[in-house]
Design a protein around this nucleic acid. Structure first.
Length: 889
RNA sequence: GGGCGAUUGGCUCAGUCGGUUAGAGCGCACGGUUCACAUCCGUGAGGUCACUGGUUCGAAUCCAGUAUCGCCCACCA
């Protein structure tokens, strides 16, 4: 055995100095990396980290991701599984530009002032900084990711995957370029997907406008008109028709006639279409196909063209006549003013309506007809849906499978092009003849795929991809796909995809679709959806409200372990959680509790240390049995991805069983006069063994403090740590055999202790006073148990001496327990003792009555399972025994 | 307009296969400073499990409906 220097734990746990040192040891040990070859017969456990956006610093969402994933990885690593946690960073195209543009604005620059090339250079620099920051911040949390495999969605590996995937989609006929109505953000100056276009209910106005009908000479007839209702009068500049319902008698005669568009004089055919709601507004709709999804759909049915009236930044373009150059809202005011002058603004009324805004910048988005790249997702969605329906991929919690299915079933083609600069450029080239060539070659095509024109005559598409396109390839692009690299072969498909439910559609759905298309296999076995974090009170955290909890500041204050614990304890998958300072404080206290319990154990080593000998005490057998239970439970909970349950198990075992009861009882033996050196050594060995296993159990969620304790424990109790130098790679404990009889006896003893303590409190006895106690055991077995437990009973309940009661009269105040009744001698009874006992008797009688009725009920005894019936009978006799113990008063 | 979730002590949340005395942490009340920890220890109070009906020997748990709050989806200008 190697001789190591005996260390001791500092009086206080100083997370700030311990954590960096521990992390450095982990890194040095290579524990985060998978072994060169997969361990024989090992299960695989692979998490590809949802890439945190590179747009800022670590927030609580990132911290939660990292905590959950790290906890799972650490558990599986200890299990000896073939483990990989591959970290990554997303280039976050639109978000990154949004953030950088703000920074540039402070520097007095703009995207335009820099130009594409310099802007992208600046972006790469910015990315370098933030990637560094976010990586360091994850390390502070304790993330045991395989940093050498860190991937970035803009690195060449990812770029190649993007080109390959797109080429394959194109070859499969799943990509097309065509005209469609897309959401346009006039501030970000790009198309955004339906998912990025967020609808809010807002108060608007519904205006009724008079369109005069065309007279015989084609000019507006002052006496005949049709009135239309609109919330967006400025769009009338793009009107191409007026629509009414075919069965609407009010307008039946007008169908086929023409109305004259104010200002522009354009003739608008009045058409009939069943999509028009007769009850809404006037029952007649102005049709602006280029700027309204409904109108666009209708126009397609009637072969009407769309007229785009906006510039990129939502000013009226040259199609708007006198209003050209005005901002959309200025144009609205002007148009309303002019209509009012003409007497054709008939009505205005407040109106609740749904307004789409850019998810990124909050600007009101503009539906706009344009030519775009689309991915035909229906065939992809079918496979992705089937994978979940048929159980090849499981979504946790299961209810999200329905949400997923609904989305997949109603999916629309994905407008995948973005008019941004930061991202992967779409690998498509146009030839002067209008042919399109898509290639996965890094340097572009050699010639037009259709007419063979030389590459020099081709121009590349300037659009880039929606950032989620590259994210959608993440589970396999990170492993080297499209090559069948060793990593890909070994780690794909992955095991758990953990993320927050708010990006189920954005990301998880896209990974499922693209993963199945590209690799033919579901990209992960399980999708674990975590909830979002709210502040205490239920509101979303927001910087403007100043109610943000900063994870890094929290780590500074209370340590990463406490933060990790607080982020997970009491949560369940898919449900939001409220994080409060009180909760963080509780987690900090728990860290401290572990530390102090360990400090006691490591400091209590008997000197000189003898060979352990003698029979284990009741307390030792009990705590080992409880440890077995906790181990079994924690293992089951981690396997079920129930981190909330797992943390509760660890907390309960460590605090309520190990520290509160076992360590107190161990002190009794360690300090007992008659105890031999072997006895003391044995008890201490039990304490250190159990502590060691507790550290193993707690390690996945609280890696730093457990590792630090492990280090010291190993120097003092090498047997307990089995010579494992690092906890991070120590094996997960195996649940040993439980001893139900021991647990039962201890439970009875504990109950007696509590009851006597209660009695002391009630009687107003001085807290430190040693009081004589009398006990009337229920039977021989109880009597024997009391004898065995006497050594614990005395110090824990602070009673001495304990006598077995003879025929003396009982006072009103007795403590009752499964072992028997007990009462204090020579202590004045509290004045209300009699009343309290009577109340207790009342409760017992009620319970007994109910149970008697139950077991006497023939349908209960006939229909309930026999073990339930037996349990109820037993409970009944327990209650009867308790009542007997209390006496008849 | 559809869908989902939540509703359990003052607060934040657990609650397995339906099993009859529903748990935890915080807070509260009372008591406690030698011997790991006041970031602690002990004792206690506090719940008609949102409401109504149903299924069942038995419901916080299953079913139907209602209410309140929250979220998601959806092309009524």
């Amino acid at each position: 055995m190697t001789t190591t220097t005996r260390r001791e734990l500092t009086p206080r746990y100083d997370s700030a100095s311990v954590e960096p040192a521990i992390y450095e040891r982990w890194l040095q040990s290579g524990a985060f990396s998978p072994s060169p070859e997969p361990p024989e017969g090992a299960e695989r456990f692979v998490i590809i980290q949802p890439p945190p956006n590179v747009t800022g610093s670590l927030h609580l969402g990132h911290a939660t991701r990292a905590t959950v994933e790290d906890t799972l990885i650490r558990y599986h690593r200890m299990r000896g599984d073939d483990t990989l946690w591959l970290p990554g960073v997303d280039h976050a195209s639109i978000s990154a530009q949004f953030v950088l543009d703000r920074i540039l604005a402070e520097e007095g620059e703009t995207r335009a002032s820099l130009g594409r090339e310099r802007y992208l250079e600046r972006m790469w620099r910015f990315m370098g900084e933030t990637r560094e920051t976010i990586g360091l911040q994850h390390r502070r949390l304790g993330a045991s990711a395989e940093w050498s495999r860190l991937r970035f969605t803009m690195d060449p590996i990812s770029a190649r995957a993007v080109r390959t995937a797109f080429k394959r989609l194109w070859d499969a006929g799943l990509v097309y370029r065509g005209e469609g109505l897309v959401n346009w953000c006039p501030r970000c100056l790009t198309t955004i997907s339906d998912l990025e276009n967020v609808h809010h209910e807002e108060q608007g106005t519904l205006w009724t406008i008079r369109y005069h009908l065309a007279g015989a000479d084609g000019t507006p007839d002052p006496d005949r008109w049709i009135s239309v209702a609109t919330t967006r009068p400025e769009t009338l500049l793009g009107d191409v028709a007026v629509a009414v319902h075919p069965d609407d008698a009010r307008y039946a005669e007008l169908v086929g006639e023409q109305a004259i568009l104010p200002f522009l004089g354009r003739a608008l055919p009045i058409i009939a279409d069943p999509a028009v709601e007769r009850e809404f507004g006037t029952g007649a709709v102005k049709m602006t196909p280029a700027h309204d999804p409904d109108d666009y759909a209708m126009a397609q049915r009637h072969s009407l063209p769309g007229i785009n009236i906006f510039t990129d930044d939502a000013r009226i373009n040259e199609a708007g006549g006198e209003f050209s150059g005005l901002d959309r809202y200025a144009a609205r005011e002007k148009i309303l003013e002019r209509l009012r002058e003409m007497g054709d603004l008939q009505r205005e009324q407040p109106h609740q309506m749904s307004v789409g805004r850019c998810d990124r910048c909050g600007t009101v988005s503009e539906p706009r007809l344009s030519t775009q790249w689309f991915i035909r997702v229906k065939p992809l969605a079918e496979r992705a849906l089937a994978a979940v329906n048929e159980g090849r991929t499981e979504i946790v919690p299961a209810r999200f499978a329905k949400v997923y299915a609904h989305w997949m079933e109603n999916i629309h083609d994905w407008a995948v092009g973005r008019q941004l600069w930061w991202g992967h450029r779409i690998p498509a080239w146009f030839c002067p003849d209008g042919h399109i060539t898509v290639t996965d070659a890094p340097d572009g095509p050699d010639a037009c795929a259709e007419c063979g024109r030389a590459a020099s005559e081709l121009t590349q598409e300037t659009d880039i991809f929606d950032t989620w396109f590259s994210s959608g390839l993440w589970p396999f692009s990170t492993l080297g796909w499209p090559d069948r690299t060793p990593d890909f072969e070994r780690f794909y498909p992955t095991t758990v995809m953990e993320t927050a439910y708010d990006i189920l559609f954005f990301w998880v759905a896209r990974m499922m679709m693209l993963g199945l298309f590209c690799t033919g296999v579901e990209p992960f076995r399980t999708v674990l959806l975590s909830g979002l974090i709210r502040v205490d009170g239920g509101a979303k955290m927001s910087k403007t409200k100043g109610n943000v909890i900063d994870p890094l500041g929290t780590i500074d204050e209370i340590g990463a372990d406490a933060l990790r614990f607080a982020l997970v304890v009491g949560t369940s998958p898919g449900n939001d959680q409220r994080l409060s300072h009180a909760k963080l404080e509780g987690a900090r206290n728990f860290t401290n509790k572990l530390w102090n319990a360990a400090r006691f154990v490591t400091g209590a080593r008997p000197e000189p240390f003898a060979e352990p000998s003698g029979e284990p005490t009741l307390a030792e057998r009990w705590i080992r049995s409880r440890l077995a239970e906790a181990t079994e439970r924690a293992t089951r909970q981690l396997d079920a991805l129930d981190l909330g349950g797992y943390t509760a198990t660890v907390h309960e075992f460590a605090w309520s069983e190990f520290a509160d009861w076992f360590l107190e009882m161990a002190k009794v033996e360690l300090r007992r006069d008659g105890a031999s050196d072997g006895d003391r050594a044995r008890v201490w060995a039990t304490a250190s063994d159990v502590l060691a296993d507790l550290l193993r159990l707690a390690h996945p969620i609280m890696p730093f403090v457990t590792e630090e304790i492990w280090d010291t424990l190993g120097s003092i109790a090498p047997a307990a740590t089995a010579g494992e130098p690092l906890l991070i790679t120590a094996p997960w404990p195996v649940a040993k055999t439980r001893e139900p009889a021991v647990e039962e006896e201890m439970a009875a003893l504990m109950e007696l202790v509590r009851a006597v303590r209660n009695l002391r409190t009630e009687s107003g006895a001085a807290a430190g006073a040693w009081l004589p106690l009398a006990i009337a055991p229920v039977d021989e077995a109880a009597s024997a148990a009391i004898e065995r437990g006497r050594g614990y009973l005395e110090p824990l309940a602070r009673v001495r001496p304990i006598e077995i009661a003879g025929g003396e009269p009982r006072p009103a105040a007795v403590a009752i327990s499964p072992l028997g009744a007990a009462w204090l001698r020579a202590t004045p009874e509290a004045s209300d003792a009699g009343a309290r006992r009577e109340a207790q008797r009342g409760e017992l009688r009620t319970g007994i009555e109910r149970l008697r009725g139950l077991v006497a009920n023939p349908s209960f005894t006939a229909k309930a399972p026999s073990d339930v019936v037996a349990r109820e009978r037993e409970r009944l006799s327990e209650l009867e025994e308790r009542l007997r113990q209390l006496g008849q008063g």
